[in-house]
Amino acid sequence: MDLQLSQIERVKTITKEDFIKNYFKPQKPVVIEQFITDWPAYNKWSLDYMKEQVGDKIVPLYDDRPVDYKDGFNEPHATMKMADYINLLKREPTKFRIFLWNILKEVPSLQKDYRYPDFGLRLMKGLPMLFFGGKDSYTFMHYDIDLANIFHFHFEGTKRVILFDQKQNKYLYKVPHSLITREDIDFSNPDFEKWPALKNAKGYETQLNHGEVLYMPEGYWHYMKYLTPGFSMSLRAIARKPKNFSKAVYNVFIMRSIDNLMRRIKGQKWIDWKNNQAIVKTNKVLEKEGR
């Protein structure tokens, strides 16, 4: 048995009017296949180009180890020169990923290679973020703290993406006071005996190729697995739905502070309690629904 996933709709290109009407307003994901063919990045951006441009930069690396109470928010697990990291990606599979790497701050010269597209939403121009990964590396299923509208531009190779909207939370073993599901769930090959609620979750999937843009609506859960070494850039626009905007404010200013405080007070017991609550709460939903 597989997850209940529909293929994300695809269009070759799109006007901002059609995007707003057909995808933003109904909050539906879409892949736009040929929207950035006129960007210099479309032809230039590859792992080799990045190595040439920023090979000497020291970059933060993350792997798929479970959250530890001692870890700071988004604290890297290792660091490496970009040239060495790209050599590693090309040589062998690695769990190390680059996550939320701000081009504007780190490599201003790359700005000439892309433009801020007009989708009819005001993009946050100070936050163009890069993400890199090796074959079979993946991000845990999570959603972004600010519940932003995300435009995810993929470069080099292919990447599998699985999305769920916030209505599926009750089936996903969401960890309380955080933005992740249980980290021991393999969303590319889930164990339904261990995680039976996942059978009821309805989501979307696609495979992203070089130069394609994925629109992820506000607060969408996303799991991404690199099928080959590659990288992506995300641009974002703030949550426009009042409910999502207020949730984003709560997450940034209250939820994160509570979580950090409890980690300091209770240590690993807090992490273990949260992980256990993810199962307890989801099982209660199944009982209530008589599944």
Rank of each mutant, 00 (worst) to 15 (best):
A239Q: 02
D71G: 05
S246P: 01
Q27E: 14
R91N: 12
D165E: 04
N87V: 06
S137A: 13
R91Y: 07
L286T: 03
G267M: 06
N74T: 10
Y49Q: 07
G219V: 00
N251M: 08
S46V: 04
Q168T: 04
L130Y: 01
D113H: 11
L5M: 05
M124Q: 14
K269C: 05
G55E: 00
R182F: 01
K243D: 07
Y215E: 00
D38Q: 15
T94V: 11
Y250P: 04
W39E: 00
M50N: 02
K199Y: 10
L104V: 09
D68M: 14
T139V: 05
F164Q: 00
E156N: 10
Q168D: 06
S178G: 10
T139C: 03
W270S: 03
K125N: 09
A201I: 02
K174V: 12
L130R: 02
G120N: 04
G219S: 03
N87T: 14
E17D: 14
L61R: 03
I238M: 11
G203H: 00
S6I: 10
G55R: 03
R97M: 10
V11Y: 02
K44P: 01
K269Y: 12
M216V: 07
K28E: 10
D2R: 09
G219R: 02
D38W: 04
Y204V: 02
F153M: 11
M216W: 03
P176E: 13
G126S: 11
N283R: 10
G230S: 08
W195L: 05
K25Q: 15
G290W: 02
L88P: 00
V11N: 04
K274P: 03
Y23Q: 05
F164D: 00
N276V: 02
I86L: 08
F253S: 11
T206L: 03
L286N: 04
H77S: 09
N43W: 07
W39L: 05
D2T: 11
T282E: 12
E106I: 10
L47G: 01
G267F: 02
N169Y: 06
L123Q: 06
K284Q: 15
M233T: 04
K25N: 14
R97G: 00
G267C: 06
K95E: 12
L261F: 15
K51F: 04
D71R: 13
S257K: 15
Y23K: 01
D113C: 07
G72M: 06
E52Y: 09
M129P: 00
T282V: 03
I103Y: 07
Q4E: 11
W270V: 03
F24P: 00
P229C: 06
E92F: 09
M82I: 04
K90W: 08
M124F: 10
D144N: 08
Y171M: 04
N244H: 15
K70Y: 08
F131G: 00
I145R: 09
I254S: 12
K199F: 06
P217K: 12
N169P: 05
N74G: 06
K167C: 08
V252F: 06
R97E: 00
P76A: 10
Q207M: 13
A237K: 08
D38G: 08
Y69S: 15
D186G: 03
Y116Q: 09
A278F: 01
D165Q: 06
F73I: 15
S257L: 11
D64V: 13
